[in-house]
Design a protein around this nucleic acid. Structure first.
Lengths: 155, 155
DNA sequence: CAGAAACGTTTCGTGTACGAAATAGTTCCT
DNA sequence: AGGAACTATTTCGTACACGAAACGTTTCTG
């Protein structure tokens, strides 16, 4: 069971990475392009939130994409702290060429489950998540450490 | 539903990393130490397989741990291509201090599920994994890539 | 309005993570 | 034996990923 969950996770990475490399992109870069395509532009923070990475990480990703001429940085005029990221012509052209399919593959497979299985899965995962959260916050209180946040990269 | 799965994944990373840093380790380093503790020593390849990383990645992890005096490299005498990694005294002392709990937290929570939920979850995840594998290997055939080996899976 | 607090972004240092190529050692074939 | 094929590990170059600290900007508060 843990194996299946792990497989699903590693496979999702393999999938996106595979598709991305066919277009000369990396996984995160693909995510950025597809995130920008429909909305036009996003602030760096909005972008980080959506691809679930820290600002400092996204800065690097955008640096490289800017170097490749895929995106452009533009200072916001309303709030000059903000940087908007937008696709260049080359970037949006590339975005249109990449099929959405790989992002949707898990949604698709989930959609193929029977209604009952889908409901069961949802219910069980929610229960697990809730329980883990409970245990974690208990532990945080006990250790009473001011800073508790931490994530990492390891994929 | 996807959110719950994602939460479980990111939370698992947060947990291990949090515990690891309390002992001056990183996530992967903690994994290595706990992997070595019961068996004494492993070849670098065995280690990579178990922590699900490539040899070239593990080389770096071991380099840093060796620098910290936690592990030792020792050339195998039977097969001189092989390098055994083993804990130093300091390493195994540290290993004994670290509670196993955080690694088991998900197993624990899974164990708290009712027998029926556990069975359902297992069945559904297996089905999803199988289906994804199917789709992926179809795609691989079409693009005519020679190697299509799926990832390992054991834990 | 001035100083403090908050916010958004970048910079810096460390640690993964991977693939490709290089290196060293082993086994297999004839 | 002698080279081809194979295996285990390291080296190299690139890209994430994170937290802490530095900066410039904006907002809050007195």
């Amino acid at each position: 069971m843990l194996e299946a969950a792990l497989f699903l996770y590693t496979e999702s990475r393999r999938l996106t990475k595979g598709v991305a490399s066919r277009f000369g992109l990396t996984g995160p870069q693909l995510a950025v392009i597809k995130m920008l395509e429909p909305v036009g532009r996003l602030s760096l923070s909005e972008l980080s939130e959506r691809i679930r990475a820290r600002n400092s990480t996204v800065t690097g990703i955008i640096d490289r994409m800017e170097r490749e001429g895929l995106v452009r940085r533009r200072r916001s005029s309303e709030d000059r702290r903000v940087v908007h990221i937008e696709l260049t012509d080359a970037g949006s052209k590339l975005a249109r060429k990449i099929p959405v399919e790989p992002f949707q593959i898990f949604r698709q497979v989930l959609g193929e489950l029977s209604a009952r299985d889908a409901a069961d899965l949802k219910r069980i995962l929610m229960r697990l998540a809730k329980r883990v959260q409970q245990i974690v916050s208990d532990a945080d209180e006990k250790s009473a450490v001011p800073n508790a946040s931490a994530d990492d990269g390891a994929k």
